[in-house]
């Protein structure tokens, strides 16, 4: 682990009861959703992490608790540091508080979380779908959502599929 990152990790583990893990030199902290806003504020104001670089989620379906992990990536330009935070969420209540008031660019990232994973973001100013059409049903990046594909036509099933396919006029 980077020496400069050590005080940050120590402070967050103490204050927010976070669990530290490391893989190939990258540090990540697992903490609960109650603490994420406070942790992000501390990272920005005390430790100089100016940028929210990344915010995404992972779905561990069919596992239910926790079903989702939200991954936050913070970058400090002045200290040249990077840290990942992970927040587990239960499948029956996927709600996470917004980071919009700490990092304004969380806005679109969180809309994407809602659109792609159906994770509701508490206190978000504009929680609409961002990538899919606004009347779309379902959240595509969830693991229980089918990829959706079209059957490939071969000579033995050509006729059968041809009937089902939408056809161009004339």
């Amino acid at each position: 682990m980077n020496e400069k990152l050590q005080p940050v990790v120590d402070a967050l583990t103490q204050r927010f009861d976070a669990q530290v893990s490391e893989f190939r030199g990258q540090v990540r902290l697992l903490l609960s959703r109650e603490h994420i806003v406070a942790a992000a504020t501390a990272l920005r104001d005390e430790f100089g992490f100016e940028m929210l670089t990344e915010q995404t989620a992972v779905d561990y379906w069919p596992q239910e608790s926790p079903r989702f992990h939200i991954v936050y990536g913070f970058t400090s330009w002045q200290h040249n540091l990077r840290i990942l935070l992970r927040v587990p969420l239960p499948g029956d209540d996927p709600v996470v508080p917004t980071l919009e008031n700490v990092y304004p660019n969380a806005n679109w990232h969180e809309r994407e979380l809602w659109d792609m994973f159906g994770i509701r973001v508490d206190g978000h100013s504009d929680l609409r779908r961002i990538l899919m059409p606004h009347d779309w049903v379902g959240h595509p990046l969830r693991k229980d959502y089918p990829l959706g594909y079209e059957e490939v036509q071969f000579s033995f099933n050509h006729e059968e599929i041809q009937v089902r396919k939408p056809q161009p006029k004339d």
Binding site: P133, H134, D135, W136, V137, G138, P146, G148, P166, Q167, P168, K169
Partner: peptide
């Protein structure tokens, strides 16, 4: 998921639903 519905002229149903 929006399933394609076939219209009279043979095209997929691609209605543009408006945002209010």
């Amino acid at each position: 998921m929006r399933t394609p519905v076939i219209l009279e002229d043979g095209m997929s149903n691609v209605t543009l639903s408006a945002v209010s």
